[in-house]
Amino acid sequence: MSRNSFAARTYRDDAVVLRTHKLGEADRIITLLTRHHGQVRAVAKGVRRTSSKFGARLEPFMVADLQLVSGRSLDIVTQAVSKGSYGREIVADYGCYTVAVAMTETAERLTDVDGEAATAQYLLLVGALAALSRGEHTPQLILDSYLLRALATGGWAPSFTDCARCSEPGPHGAFSAALGGAVCHDCRPPGSPAPAPETMILLAALLSGNWPLADGSQPQHRREAAGLVASYLQWHLERVVRSLKHVERV
């Protein structure tokens, strides 16, 4: 069989839909985070027609088992079977929707075609979307926890106890996004913010998934933590996550 034949170019993978763009009359370009093939951009033909057989399965936040055909610049989606439908529950709450969009945009920025590294990001995002759709925790806490863990998975794990620069055991009173989290008095760069101790405890809980502690946190510490997470994210991504400014914070 020729390497360029249709069958040879066909592959199957689980994927979560990150975003969609309109293409031509009735098609869409779907940006996917797959379990084994990293980030994939594929054309879904005719999905904007009301008669489309898999249009609903290729909406953002949907998890699907897809069959794709490799193309020169874009792959083509040929079949889709739904594996997790989180969109409806998420979009029924506008605050949840803004959080989910910020998570998918971050996932898009953090991943590329490297399949091995993307598997952890895929599982993390699917878990976060599922938790969001079930309403298990405050959406904003899920977002901040997801952002910290996604950055840690991407190789930018912050430290909220030991000093991020000299590893001196904490707790420490200052935070530096550039140095990687909490910093001791000696390593603290001038102008570093000094968050409340409870905020640092909340950030550590969000990173480790200590939900009883995170759920019991106070609103002012959540707001402060959200600001630090956003600054940490933007420092390491080196670009603005546009949807973060639309997130509804309580």
């Binding site: 969609t20 909406e59 953002p60 936040f61 969109g87 409806r88 979009v91 029924a92 709450d93 506008y94 929707y97």
Partner: peptide, 14 residues
């Protein structure tokens, strides 16, 4: 009836 349209409808209803 897509995700952006549904989100807009949810926001308007609120």
């Amino acid at each position: 009836p897509n995700l952006e349209g549904e989100a807009t409808a949810t926001y308007l209803a609120r």
